[in-house]
């Protein structure tokens, strides 16, 4: 048992943690505009990965596959908004929680029957031979995950900060009525946020697929950790997810080493429950005032 090994685990875990952070970021996008999240987001990740795999099998070039997969994710996001979220939000009910769970279940079953229940490899042109830096091995594949995550998050964060359309997200989150008076359509902005959220999840699927392989259950534990990251960081806190993802990924990797791989989900789940108990708005989130 030496230090390099532990460091190695921390680094690989933290890298994986960025994928959780990316999906969690997708939750933040929809939560900001509509106070809702897609409980079936894991299925969205999985379906996008399967779709991309199909594109690869058709012999389409990898960059095009990525674009196709991302667009597919965005379309699924729009579908979830239309079928699962909009009505419930209009009726001001919590029905969307059930409906998004149901849509996820449907997606899961469909994937199982179309693509089969087995895990399949996801070929990618990026190498998985590790490069050693200070004795710690990092594969180009892992580097591509980090780059991909930061590229997507940077892109969308830039969109939110530097375009007027993006600022409309923040306006809608801050004050729905006033946003309407400015000419910001809530329905359209929520649609856009779901499309972006789907886009982000598809990216997560494409990035992680070469590492974990593709199968109907590929995202079922992934999504739990993304929930943890989102809740611990706060559902409305921007870049808090990156740090939380780093930490959770590292903790998880150490846990699975010391306690056995079966326990690897446990710290995330515990953290989520603790975070909800201690600070429901998240470590980086803001507290709000109750109104009557």
């Amino acid at each position: 048992m030496n230090r390099t090994m532990i460091l190695q685990m921390i680094v690989s875990g933290a890298l994986m943690g960025q994928v959780y952070a990316l999906i969690a970021y997708g939750f933040q996008l929809t939560y900001a505009t509509s106070k809702s999240i897609n409980f079936g987001q894991g299925e969205l990740v999985m379906l996008s990965a399967f779709f991309s795999l199909t594109l690869i099998n058709w012999g389409i070039a990898y960059p095009l596959v990525v674009v196709g997969g991302l667009l597919f994710g965005a379309v699924l996001g729009l579908f979830v908004e239309r079928a699962g979220v909009r009505l419930a939000l209009e009726q001001k009910s919590e029905g969307w929680i059930l409906l998004t769970i149901i849509l996820g279940l449907f997606g899961f079953s469909t994937a199982e029957n179309i693509w089969g229940r087995d895990d399949r490899p996801f070929p990618t042109p990026i190498s998985s031979d590790p490069i050693h830096i200070f004795g710690i091995g990092i594969t180009p594949l892992e580097v591509s995950v980090i780059l991909g995550v930061f590229a997507v998050m940077g892109l969308i964060e830039g969109f939110k900060r530097y375009t007027l359309l993006g600022k409309a997200f923040a306006a809608l989150a801050a004050d729905r009525d006033a946003a309407g008076l400015m000419g910001i359509s809530a329905t359209r902005t929520i649609m856009l946020s779901y499309a972006l959220s789907g886009f982000v999840s598809a990216m997560a699927g494409i990035l992680i697929a070469p590492i974990t392989t593709v199968g109907p259950t590929m995202a079922s534990t992934l999504i739990l950790k993304a929930f943890s990251v989102a809740v611990v960081a706060g559902l409305d806190s921007g870049f808090g997810v990156v740090i939380t993802g780093l930490v959770l990924g590292a903790i998880e990797s150490l846990t699975s080493f010391f306690l056995g791989s079966g326990w690897r989900e446990a710290p995330g789940l515990l953290l989520l429950i603790l975070a909800l108990a201690v600070r429901p708005t998240g470590l980086f989130g803001k507290t709000t005032i109750r109104k009557v």
Partner: peptide, 9 residues
């Protein structure tokens, strides 16, 4: 959603 997430975890 927070309640659902807590119980799910």
């Amino acid at each position: 959603p927070q309640f659902a997430l807590g119980t799910l975890s």
